[in-house]
Write a protein that binds this DNA or RNA. Structure first.
Lengths: 229, 229
DNA sequence: GATAGTTTCATACAAATGTTTGAAATGCAA
DNA sequence: TTGCATTTCAAACATTTGTATGAAACTATC
């Protein structure tokens, strides 16, 4: 058998099993049985179990990050070099949400694998996630260009909350479905993205004033009353 | 040695080790060594390793949930039976945020343990978290009373996003610190709670109109422009 | 202080797991 | 075909792990 076929078979089997049963419950023996290859093949082709998991995760991560940067670039070109804050957030949360949610993605192994990786947290995946900060800096920079007057701290909190809502929706979709008794439609990805984007934009622009008065975010000063909105 | 002393020693040692090194890296042998008790003591007093972890987690969970309900009750009494939406969200996110963040909590084993439990995800903890839905329903009910006209779906999304921001801040505080190069102050818990509450209230009240026009949330209809705010 | 119930202890068990090994098979170029 | 490198394979290795056992030590009650 060609070397690459064994490699691919292992990758496919591993992704499927991890997606279905989680990292804790799947052993190398499960994977090689599913892939119909020899036990030693994993260490021969990947070096170790952790490197296999890492390769699975980086592949999907790179995919998401590339989509994010493509969307960001497209938005910047539309705006003549400067994207709107809304489009920046959309480029940030759209790809992972589209990648993990939606009715067509239900059966997608890749989607289920990434949801798993978001819920459980194994060392090789943690290591890769830690490198994500560099990627996020590009979005922070774009946000800074989109909202020049805004305090950096506010931008970071906005970026952070956007990711919070996106990731938490992916990770806790079952619970939200159960809590809302099915009322929250988790298949309408477009609407979810709109929701996350609009809340984030609201948070980022709250308290912002045209130009005269100094920008002083209302929500860090204390409690907020209806009149403030 | 009195029976309870061994039990407590195991609980304390386990919480400390899990807090420091995570669930994946700590074995029963590590725990009993730290607690200076015999290996068999764990199974004698707790039945199994999973039941030990479960007991640790439920203890802290019950604590948080009680604080939440106390705050909710206090807010409802202040408002004559009906709490404001702001106070409800505050009661929801305040306790876990205060429990896990802040300079004084830095050395707290309980805080570090709960952060760990939020990052990693082991079966016994997952089982307990699944029961949390019943607890959250009480807050959904309170929100419904606070915003009678609002569509239920909107309330659930608001509740969901509030938890998203709170939990994600707890779980990713290191990353936010690194991304913002220390600009985001994660020790100022009061300000963080204010932030989460105000963003949530904004999300929940956006598009809401005094009474005449039908409430139609702007952010589910499509992109949001500055004028909409 | 004898007895019954509880707790501790050293040790063994049994199973699972990632990894390694060395030979056999296969592929491929000269 | 020969020879060399790559790949596959069965088997074994070496730990690690949670759990169980049965005797010993301890405690409290009568």
């Amino acid at each position: 058998m060609a070397s690459d076929q064994t490699r691919s078979a292992i990758l496919a089997a591993a992704e499927r099993l991890y997606a279905d049963r989680g990292f804790g419950d799947v052993t190398l023996r499960d994977i090689v049985a599913e892939a119909n290859v020899n036990l030693a093949a994993v260490n021969y082709h990947f070096g170790s179990k952790d490197e296999l998991i890492a390769e699975l995760f980086v592949t999907r991560s790179i995919q998401t990050n590339r989509e994010r940067l493509n969307e960001l670039k497209a938005a910047e070109e539309r705006g003549g070099g400067r994207a709107t804050i809304e489009d920046i957030i959309r480029a940030l949360v759209g790809p992972p949400l589209r990648g993990c949610l939606g009715p067509d993605r239900e059966g997608s192994t890749a989607a289920r694998f990434m949801i798993r990786a978001s819920i459980e947290s194994v060392p090789p995946i943690r290591r890769i996630k830690n490198r994500e900060v560099d990627h996020l800096r590009k979005f922070a920079a774009a946000m800074r260009r989109a909202m020049p007057g805004r305090d950096d701290t506010e931008l970071y909190w906005g970026l952070h909350f956007a990711l919070a809502m996106a990731h938490h929706t992916i990770r806790e979709k079952e619970r939200l479905l159960r809590l809302s008794e099915g009322k929250c439609d988790l298949d309408d990805v477009r609407a979810i993205i709109d929701r996350v984007v609009s809340v984030t934009v609201m948070a980022l622009t709250a308290g912002e004033v045209p130009a005269s008065k100094p920008a002083r975010p209302a929500f860090v000063q204390g409690r907020l009353t209806r009149q403030d909105l």
